[in-house]
Amino acid sequence: MSAQPLPVEPESPPEPAVEPLLELRGIDVYYGRVQALRGISLYVGKGEIVALIGSNGAGKTTTLRTISGLVRPARGEVRFEDAPIHQLGAEQIARLGIGHAPEGRRLFSRMTVRENLEMGAFSRRDTRRLREDYERVYTLFPRLRERRGQLAGSLSGGEQQMVAIGRAMMGHPRLMLLDEPSLGLSPILVEAIYQVIREINADGTTVLLIEQNALMALNTARRAYVMETGSIATSGPASELLDSPEVQRAYLGM
């Protein structure tokens, strides 16, 4: 690719305040001939909540799928705990400790809630700690304890989102990728989900989350990246972006 300068030169990201857990360097992704990501670089520090916002089709989901190994980058590098992971298979990446609650929830709809959680812990052998993790999920989402024998496909949207997050938690990940956890939920449920996200983070899990509706995300995250048509347009501390007039106009509907 020619070294054409980007129309909007992104601000150089601030020096990592904490040790980076995840880092993307110059990621290009294509779907066939169509380029979906153009030179994405970002990092997520240990213990942080980082938000990735942008309008529909900007490439947020593609970014998460690239991290998880569901999509292969044509160029660039994904590093997790300082080791390149973009050559690994998706199931290997999952086993490294990256949990992913994907876009559309993608539950195993003909399995029960309990079985869905069990699948989240598929690659784990430490059955003793496993029990604690079920407890943790059921404590955070008491609804799921009630519905644990029910088929996932028959749950409401909010409950399905809880299962998706719970399933990702069951792998006991160090990094959680959440793709639009609030989509289609009532404001009360959105608040509840975000409360859980903060609690998960407080327990020591790093979080990278995507939202189209940016207000909630920016209020929760420490830092954020704004994506536009496949590249990072802006980034910075969440509080600064909340105050930025451009962001307010484009993503907060102000």
Binding site: G69, G89, E91, A94, R95, R106, M111, F122, S123, R167
Partner: peptide, 14 residues
């Protein structure tokens, strides 16, 4: 799991 959702199965480490 693979039958029901292959991507989700991959994300579960299968």
């Amino acid at each position: 799991a693979t039958a029901q959702d292959r991507d989700a199965a991959l994300l579960s480490g299968i």
